[in-house]
Design a protein around this nucleic acid. Sequence first.
DNA 1: CAGTGGTCTAGACCACGCT
DNA 2: GCGTGGTCTAGACCACTGT
Lengths: 245, 245
Amino acid sequence: MADELRHRMMSGAIPPGSLLPSEATLMAEFSVARGTVREALALLRAEGLTVSEKGRGTFVRPVLPVRRLGSERYRAELEQVRRGELGTSFTVDQRVDWSSYTLDKEFREVPAADPAAELFGVTPGTMLLERRFVFRTHGVAQQMSTSFLLLSMVADTPVADPANEPWPGGNTSQLHSLGYDITAVREQVVARMPLPDEKDTLRIPGGVPVVAITRQTYVDEMVVEVADIVVPGDRVRLDYLIHLT
Amino acid sequence: MADELRHRMMSGAIPPGSLLPSEATLMAEFSVARGTVREALALLRAEGLTVSEKGRGTFVRPVLPVRRLGSERYRAELEQVRRGELGTSFTVDQRVDWSSYTLDKEFREVPAADPAAELFGVTPGTMLLERRFVFRTHGVAQQMSTSFLLLSMVADTPVADPANEPWPGGNTSQLHSLGYDITAVREQVVARMPLPDEKDTLRIPGGVPVVAITRQTYVDEMVVEVADIVVPGDRVRLDYLIHLT
DNA sequence: CAGTGGTCTAGACCACGCT
DNA sequence: GCGTGGTCTAGACCACTGT
C-alpha cells in the first residue's frame, strides 16, 4: 500500500503540495482497517515524503527552496571584510540583506569539555566563551549554532558582549577586529536524524535528517574558533570547491 | 513513553547494542495496549535510535565505525598517482589495501540527460559513458556511485572496458592515463532519506539518512567527470579543509 | 516449543481545522 | 458540526529465532 502511494507521488499522479486521500477513503479503497492505513502513512512520513496535519489531512511534501552553504562563502566574506563591507556567512549564503534576519543569542562562560577542547587543541578546563545562536528569516528558524571562542582572547572586548550581535560582517569580521585574519577553515559534516530539541526549534517534520557541521577556524596552525552548526537537511546543499594545484 | 525510553538509552541505562524490554514486557510496565507500545517503538526506530529484528527483539543501535571522506583524499590520491603508486579514493579513505574490496560494475553508453548535461556543461544528447559501481568491504555494500565520462574522451580506451575495474589508482589514475591531470574537484552535498533501492542494496535500517554527493572533476575549466555518490549517513563523516590564502 | 516482532481487524474517544 | 488526523484498547494470526 505504501509502495502504491509512493508510486502515485513519484509519477506525479499526486503532485507535491497536494492532499492525499483521507484515512477513511484509503480504508475503503484498499479494504483495510484504519490501523493498517496509518502504518502505511507512518512509513511514508518516516521517508520524508509526506507531512500530516491534525484536522487538515496528509500532504505530499512540497519541494522546498534550498540554501547553499559553500566553501566559497568564506572567501567572499573575507573579501568583504577586507573591503570594509558588511555581511555574514549566513547572509552571504542567503543572498539576503544582513538586516533581514533575526538572531536569538545566549552567551556563557564555560570550561572546555571534551569535544571542544580537543578541536581547539587545549587542555580540558580552559575557559571558553560559548555563544548559542538561532538564525531566523521571516520568523522561522533556519539554523542553530553553538560557537566557542577562547575566553583569554575575547574577554573584555566588544565580541564578548551579546548586545553587539548581530555583528555586521559576522564571524570573520569579529576575529578581524581582534587582530586575527583567518587563513583556513575545516568543516566536518555528518548527517543524522534531529534530536528532540532540534526538531522543535527548527520545526523539522518527521523523516527529515539534519546536517551537522563541526567547524574549526584557523589562523595559521592555531584554532581560533570552534562551532557546531545544525541545519535541516531538506533546506541546504553544501558546496565545496577543492583546488588541487 | 518514547521519551522515557530515549532517556534510558541516552543516560546509558540501556547501553548501545543491548536488547530493549520486549513489547509484552513494556505493555505490562506502562500498562498500555500493544499498539501503543509499537507506536512508541516506531518513533524511536524513525529517529534512528533502535533497530528491530523479527523473532529476536529490539536493540539499541550500536555505535558504528565511521569512514571519513575528505577533501584531502584527492590530494593524497594525486600524489600517489604522480609517484606511480596504487590506491583509489575509496581505499585511501578507508586506509585499507586496494585489493580488499569488491566492486559491482555496470557500464552503459547513454545520451546526456539533464542533471548530468548541465554539470558537464554540454548540450543534452551528447553521448556519455555511464558507469555504476557498488563498493563492498567484507561483503557488505558501503557506497553506491554512478560516474559519467564523455564518451568522445574514453571510447576505445582501456577506461571504457569494465574488465579493467577495479582500476589500480582509481579515477585520478584513469584520467591520468588519458592524459588529463585533474586540477580541482567540486562536491555538492545533500542529506536525505534513502530511496527504496538504496535502502535495499546498502542495507540501511529505518531512521538512517544518506549523504548524496554530486562530484564534478575539473581539468582547468573543463569538467571531465561527473559522479553521484550515495553513502549511508551513519557510516561517514565528510572532512573538508578550506584554504583561504 | 515458547517467545519475539510483523501485520491486521474493529471498535473507541479526543483535539484540531474549517465552514 | 463535521471531517480530519492523533491516540488508545483488545483481541487475532503469522513468520522468525532461539533452545
